[in-house]
Simulated scan of single mutants.
Amino acid sequence: MSVRVSLVAAARSSSLLAERFDDDRPLDQAGWHEVQLAAQALVPLGAAELRYCSPTARSRATGEALGYAPMAQPALRDCDMGRWRGLTLSDVAAREPAAVDAWLADPRSAPHGGEPLFAFITRIGGWLDTRPACEGSIVAVAEPAVVRAALVYALGAPPSTYWNVDVRPLSTITLTGLPGRWSLRLEAGPR
């Protein structure tokens, strides 16, 4: 028996350049508009037996706007960025360039005082591996970082792969399998 887990990246709450670490802002106007445009393709995922979201405002709002009525899962929270919370990458790079370099180079480092990348990926993988092992489907709306971490974990890729995965708002990945044994499933596009 395998389970199908579809992960939907939350709609945006700011422009890409204005994104802040561990930010909990609600959807912005562009985010709401993008949800409306993507709804036709994403609403059917709401037929899943289990519907979750990360506890952030934008993930909850995205799930609600798509009609999922998701249950917030604390395990799907974004990476704890410690003292960098609320800052942009540019802000931190200007203040602590050596710390940013260390953080990007070593997945076990946490120069910000928060959660190391390795621990974040492991936490998200733990959530995946504790999903009910039944024939059925799950949908979860989460921060793009959470979707990236889930993909890295499911594929058994090195943690450094995380930096090479680009997850755009409202993009979707589907994982199928059992705890500890996941496969990426790519859906056929429109014909």
Results as ranks from 00 to 15, higher is better:
Y153N: 06
G31K: 12
F118W: 13
H33L: 12
P44E: 03
E19T: 11
P158K: 03
D23F: 12
S183W: 07
A157K: 05
G31D: 14
G63D: 13
R181L: 11
R77H: 15
D166A: 04
R77T: 07
V92Q: 06
W84N: 00
L178T: 10
V3N: 07
R20A: 15
S59N: 06
V35D: 12
S13A: 15
A9F: 05
M71Q: 09
G189E: 12
P107V: 02
P44Y: 02
V165Y: 01
M71P: 00
V43W: 08
A145W: 03
G113P: 01
V43F: 10
E64Q: 08
F118R: 11
A119N: 06
T88G: 00
L45F: 09
R20N: 08
V141N: 13
L42A: 13
E115Y: 03
S14T: 02
L50A: 11
S160W: 08
C53S: 14
V100F: 05
S171R: 06
V43H: 14
F120K: 00
L184V: 00
E143Y: 06
L45C: 10
A38D: 12
G63T: 13
L184D: 00
A30L: 11
A99C: 10
P159H: 02
G136H: 05
A188E: 09
H112Y: 07
V3W: 10
A30Y: 09
A154G: 14
L186P: 02
G189T: 14
A99D: 15
T174S: 15
L42D: 15
G113I: 00
A105N: 02
R95W: 07
V147A: 10
G67A: 04
E115G: 04
D22W: 07
L76P: 07
A188L: 04
A105E: 02
A10G: 07
R95S: 14
M1D: 11
V141Q: 12
L45D: 08
V100A: 08
W182P: 14
V141K: 06
G177V: 14
W84F: 00
D24Y: 13
A154Y: 09
P169R: 04
T56Q: 07
L184I: 00
F21V: 03
R123Q: 01
A18I: 04
D101Q: 15
M71N: 02
M81R: 00
A142S: 08
Y162I: 05
